[in-house]
């Protein structure tokens, strides 16, 4: 599969829904169209160990890329809880994150450049292959989290990090929401910077990993084995809350029969809930927001002027609304 073939397909009609491993196919509002399976874009184009940059096609599975990078003691510091099928393109298009978000940011923070195709068949690039670059609009970052609505990612350049020589995990069991919040904050503010600070609720587990030269050899605790949220039933929501709202969020989870995976130092996470309306309303009361991911009718609100700008960008890049129509806002 090549970008030219993607362009030919896109010109042929639609609407199309770009997809990788299908692990996040329901994220966003409902959409309809023909699936455009990009798993044929499966080449790791370059791993430049000295520059800590790689160039890969969008359909490469994240696990396969990580295995290749580990040979050079490098890693792409993204660890979304999607199982083994997630592709690099899908992770970027959804801005999906896992615990490593705490230290390394989200996909848009690690992408350096992209080649992509518009619905009119235009094949274009933005950014480059170097870690520092301000030439032109940063369209590669704009495409991150755009849920396949603006363009089809074909190839991306990514910033890599060294695999830490030493990593240690600290696990604590909390008795109530405020204890959990206090423990998470203490871990996030430790002088030796954590790679991850997580709260799992209602399991009441607070855990953190630390990495670096200052991590002394010793007994290594295992990261807790927690069931991945996406395999269970109930509505799935992404959320963001102020980091000071951790205790209130966990209390809200108890009140709404919600399972939470929280990046406590960042204030983002995933929720599986049996009462999505009440959970979403509660999160908004805390000053946060939710993003629909699966089996939910919860939408989202943004200020009307910025929504107009989003619509204008979509209209310029995909004038006939042939890429994942309705994903960002209801059609019409």
């Amino acid at each position: 599969m090549t970008a030219e073939e993607v362009a030919t397909t896109l010109r042929s009609g639609g609407p199309f829904i770009p997809r990788g491993g299908g692990t996040k196919a329901t994220w966003g509002l409902p959409t309809e169209g023909t699936e455009l399976d990009l798993r044929g874009l499966d080449r790791i184009v370059a791993v430049d160990a000295g520059d800590m940059v790689c160039v890969v096609e969008a359909g490469v599975r994240l696990v396969d890329l990580q295995a290749r990078l580990a040979e050079d003691r490098l890693a792409l510091m993204l660890d979304p809880a999607d199982g083994s099928q997630a592709t690099v393109g899908g992770v970027l298009a959804t801005n999906a994150c896992g615990p490593l978000r705490h230290r390394y940011g989200k996909p848009r923070d690690l992408v350096l450049g992209a080649q992509f195709v518009l619905t009119d068949g235009t094949i274009a690039r933005s950014g480059g292959r170097v870690v520092k670059n301000v030439a032109g609009y940063d369209i590669a970052r704009l495409l991150c989290g755009s849920l396949g609505t603006l363009a089809v990612l074909c190839e991306v350049a990514l910033r890599l990090h060294p695999l830490p020589a030493r990593r240690r995990t600290v696990v604590a069991q909390a008795t109530n929401p405020s204890d959990a919040a206090r423990a998470a904050r203490a871990l996030a503010e430790a002088p030796l910077r954590a790679e991850a600070v997580e709260v799992a609720w209602p399991e009441r587990v607070v855990w953190a990993t630390f990495a670096g030269e200052g991590v002394l050899p010793g007994v290594e605790a295992e990261a807790p084995a927690l069931p991945p949220l996406c395999l269970e039933s109930g509505a799935l929501l992404g959320f963001g809350v102020p980091t000071t709202a951790t205790a209130a969020l966990l209390a809200l989870a108890d009140a709404t029969r919600t399972v939470i995976r929280l990046r406590a130092g960042v204030g983002v996470g995933e929720a599986r809930t049996l009462d999505d309306e009440a959970f979403a309303a509660g999160v908004r009361t805390l000053g946060g927001h939710v993003s629909p991911r699966r089996d939910t009718t919860v939408g989202y609100e943004r200020d009307p002027v910025s929504l107009d700008l989003m619509r204008a960008v979509k209209a310029r890049l995909d004038p006939d609304d042939r890429l994942s129509p309705g994903r960002l806002w209801p059609v019409g």
Binding site: N95, L142, G267, S306, M310, V313, K314, L328
Partner: peptide
């Protein structure tokens, strides 16, 4: 607050 839904327009406005 991190991760607002919708397009990341700041990504292109910055720079």
């Amino acid at each position: 607050v991190a991760d607002p839904p919708g397009l990341d327009l700041l990504a292109v406005v910055i720079g």
